[in-house]
Amino acid sequence: MTERPAGSVSHDVTNLQIGPSHVEWKGDALEITIEERDKRLFNPLRRKVRGKVRVIPEALNPASFALDARENHIWHCMAPRARIEVAMDEPRVRWSGSGYFDHNRGSEPLEDGFRTWHWSRAHMKSGAVVCYEGERGDGSVFASAIRFGADGIPDETDLPPSADLPSSKWGIARRTRSEIGFAEVSRTWEDTPFYARSELASKLYGEDVVSVQESLDMRRFASPLVQFMLPYRMPRQKR
C-alpha cells in the first residue's frame, strides 16, 4: 500500500481508482486489482505485488451506523459474510476462503474522533456477529454488539461480557467480548506501534467461534515518533 496524492485518486458509482490499483463492482462481486510494490524496513528494493482479489458477498447490509453523536464518523458493514478468491501473479499465490467487507468514512481525521477502539467479527452458524467498542476523542465511550442474519440485516443484541487479552508486542492494549469472559489469541497477523490484528478463539451466544479482532490506539498513531516512522513502512508518493 502506497500513500498517494489526491490527483492519483478518482471514482465513480462502481469504481475506485488509486494510482495503478482499482476496486470495482463486477456483477455480484467486488474485484480488487492490485498493482503495487511492497516496502521492507531498511531495504530499498521494492518487490512487485500484482494480482486480483474477488469478494463475493453472501448478503448485503444496507444500513450504516454513526460512531459519534455528530455523525463525523460512519461505519458500514456491507457484507457481514463473504467468500473471497485470491489470485496473485507476483508473488505467485492463490487461495480462497471466507471473508468480510466493511468501510469507514468521516468528515475529520480518525485521530480527532477517537482515542482507542476494539473491534471483532465472528462468523456464526447462521450470519455473523460484530462487537465494536472504544473511547472517543472527547473521552466518552461506546460499545455495541450487532448480529447479522443470513440475509445480512443487522440487529443490535445484548453485549457479551468483556474479555481482556494480553497486550501486543508493541504494548497495545487489546480487548474483546466473549460469553465466558475469556478469549485466547490464536495468532497475531499485524503488530505495529499503534495497531494490532489477531485471530481469537472465544464463545458467543452459545457457539464456539473463531474471531478476527483489532485494537487501535490513535494517540499512538498521532505521536510525532510514529508519524516520523510511517513513511519507512508505507511509501508516500508526493506527486
Rank of each mutant, 00 (worst) to 15 (best):
A63W: 13
A183Y: 04
W25A: 05
V141M: 05
Q213D: 14
R54I: 02
A69S: 13
R197Y: 03
S120N: 12
P80F: 10
R233I: 05
L16M: 10
F65S: 09
H73S: 06
V86T: 11
F194S: 07
C131S: 06
H76K: 13
P91D: 05
G206P: 02
T188Y: 02
R81I: 02
G181N: 10
G171V: 03
V53W: 07
R70I: 04
A150E: 15
L216C: 11
R136L: 14
D155V: 15
I153Q: 15
I180G: 11
S167H: 01
A79S: 13
R236M: 13
S178I: 05
A59F: 03
D12I: 09
E156H: 10
E108I: 12
R136V: 02
G137M: 04
D191N: 08
P160F: 07
Y195T: 02
D28Y: 04
I74D: 01
M124G: 00
E184W: 01
K238Q: 14
V55Q: 01
V53D: 01
G127V: 10
S215G: 14
G99L: 06
E179L: 07
R47T: 09
D68Q: 07
D164M: 05
I146Q: 02
A196Y: 05
L200W: 02
R136W: 06
D155L: 14
T33D: 14
P62R: 11
D12F: 04
E71R: 15
I172H: 01
E24G: 00
A6I: 08
R147A: 10
N61M: 03
S215H: 08
D12L: 06
I74C: 02
G19Y: 06
H118Y: 14
K125F: 03
R105T: 15
